[in-house]
Write a protein that binds this DNA or RNA. Structure first.
Lengths: 333, 333
DNA sequence: CCTGTTCTTGGAACGGGTTCCACGCGCGGG
DNA sequence: CCCGCGCGTGGAACCCGTTCCAAGAACAGG
């Protein structure tokens, strides 16, 4: 029982192989009735096209490279969900390269021996380096940025200024001193980019125009020990200055550490300490954390479509797709 | 500047395409001189064969699925090294599936829609389930077990009984009370198999025939907090009973936690407490840990060759390849 | 009802390998 | 010196899709 081929499908449906191929690839010019017949034949035979034959016949790799910093965080997992669902619909494979640090990224970009080059490139979060531009000129590879912005290529990104602003507008209505915690930009990692600066500028802008000052700002690296230390220092200060207080923690991870410490001190979040996070991690709902939800999947999905349109010939100027976070109010405020 | 094809190479070398293909695939029947000419042409043109064309022409996927529990541990990284180096030599790709728990494994094995089936299957550490046997019958897919044993399929594995015995033989010559620490077999994870039971039976067998008893045995789960707790309890008991003592920690991770605690108490490993580990992790040399080194890469390499021989037609009865750990004595004893 | 477009559609050519068959050449034996 | 065998080699056929061209079908306008 050999695997059925496109020939078998064509015979079964009483049409030519060209027609079957057109149905498979959604090339519009197929009449409704014919399309149905072909789809039925495909279903009956349990036909699945051979991707390798497709690649050699089409002269393309039908593969997209996705460059991202790491894939162990919620954010990138969701981002990949969005990217992969869009690429799957268009029958493209995705090759994931978690590059971790600048040297690996540059090694990847500089590599001359990209034997079977991907048809397109998705870069997540990375800032654009000089090497990137050189490589792009050399390879002509269609590229899209996601979670990052540049005016020279298509991009799909979150509006972090707006996210900071939303947090700010809500925070100024809450009682007590105002605090803010940011995430440190590690210089040898490219993936921090301007995300936290943007959140900060949005937040501070609103606070200022509301005539409020932030009592203290903190910067923590993105690990749980540092987050806990920051929480301790912050609460010491807040208790000394008098509760209640309101804290904008620009990443849920930081907010989580703060909630831990609040509980440990017998205080109550949403009464003594108001906490606003950012990310809407899966646990945020359970723990009742007020936070900003980001439509990360949509951002990925849209990025994929920007790239796909380039792949099918679109050649206009760079486009930018901006996504807005949404404030979700829960018990922590 | 198109990518060169096998046609270009044939022309350049003044031979037929068949000959070039034969050289590429090491089909013996090519005369030395001709082979040289072809190899030179390949080098001159910087020719790399198109894997997709190969797959469609050959009617095979030239891909091997490797099923393993996780790939974040030293052991599996080394195992993959061994597997991949062998498969690369034979121009096979490797697709890695870290399946983590029983349900994912069964979902993988039960799947009917393994569209472009791999030519062969490597299963690491997993015990064989009923589903596995059913699937094997259905798909006829050549299979090899690595780090596990069954008498129905080829296998390549470490002799953990022998490892335990080596540890035992050495331990009974060391002074003081005897302790042993094992790793807990989590029941919903398949990947613990009989490894630790085997080490235990080897170790206890030797101790018994030497007329020695083990003062206390501990079981710890494989995480650092549990390991540390176990170390504390063990050392409390040992100090109460009088030092020196000798401990066989059946995984370096456990041994490491023990060394930490030994240092913390101002004791000296190799004098007050003798520690024997198992694995020879990269840090074992630096920290002077006496341990059992496992030829994991060789085990993987051999597993790959067992599978490759099946793929090229070998059809004899199941074969088993057994590998022996080697005791490495360092300062901790 | 006829002619000229515009849609659809069939199928050959093609892409880059592998495999198999047939042929040529070299060598040993008679 | 001739014949036969086998090794080494060339190249056609094939694998399975995509694409493109030409031809048939359908439809609108006169």
């Amino acid at each position: 029982m050999r695997k059925p081929t496109i020939q078998d499908v064509a015979r079964q449906a009483g049409v030519g192989v060209g027609t079957v191929s057109r149905v498979l690839n959604n090339h519009v010019a197929v009449k409704g009735a014919t399309r149905e017949t072909v789809l039925k034949a495909i279903a009956d035979l349990e036909y699945t096209p051979n991707p390798h034959a497709r690649r050699i016949a089409g002269g393309k790799s039908y593969t997209i490279s996705v460059l991202l910093p790491v894939l162990t965080t919620e954010f990138y997992v969701r981002l990949l969900d969005g990217l992969e669902s869009a690429f799957q619909e268009a029958r493209y494979d995705v090759a994931i390269f978690p590059l971790l640090d600048r040297s690996r990224l540059e090694r990847y970009l500089g590599s001359h021996t990209l034997a079977y080059q991907a048809d397109g490139l998705v870069m997540a979060t990375y800032n654009l380096t000089q090497m990137f531009h050189e490589r792009r000129l050399r390879t002509q590879q269609p590229t899209v940025l996601v979670d990052a912005y540049s005016d020279t290529v298509d991009s799909s990104f979150m509006d972090n200024v707006s996210g900071g602003r939303l947090a700010g507008e809500y925070a100024v209505g809450l009682p007590g001193h105002l605090y803010a915690v940011w995430v440190e930009t590690e210089l040898d990692h490219l993936f921090t980019t301007r995300v936290f600066e943007d959140r900060r500028s949005g937040f501070l802008g609103v606070a200022q125009s509301a005539g409020r000052t932030v009592r203290r700002e903190f910067t923590s690296s993105f690990d749980s020990l540092a987050a806990r230390n920051t929480a301790v220092t912050l609460l010491d200060d807040a208790q000394a200055a008098g509760l209640p207080c309101t804290v904008f923690a620009s990443a849920d991870m930081l907010a989580g550490a703060l909630l831990d410490e609040v509980n440990l001190r017998g205080l109550t979040a949403g009464r003594d300490v108001h906490v606003i996070g950012f990310d809407d991690q899966p646990w945020a709902a359970e723990r009742g954390l007020t936070t900003l939800h980001q439509p990360v999947e949509s951002m990925g999905y849209e990025a994929a479509h920007l790239l796909l349109s380039r792949l099918s010939g679109f050649n206009g100027p760079p486009r930018a797709r901006r996504f807005e976070p949404r404030l979700i109010v829960r018990a922590s405020t």
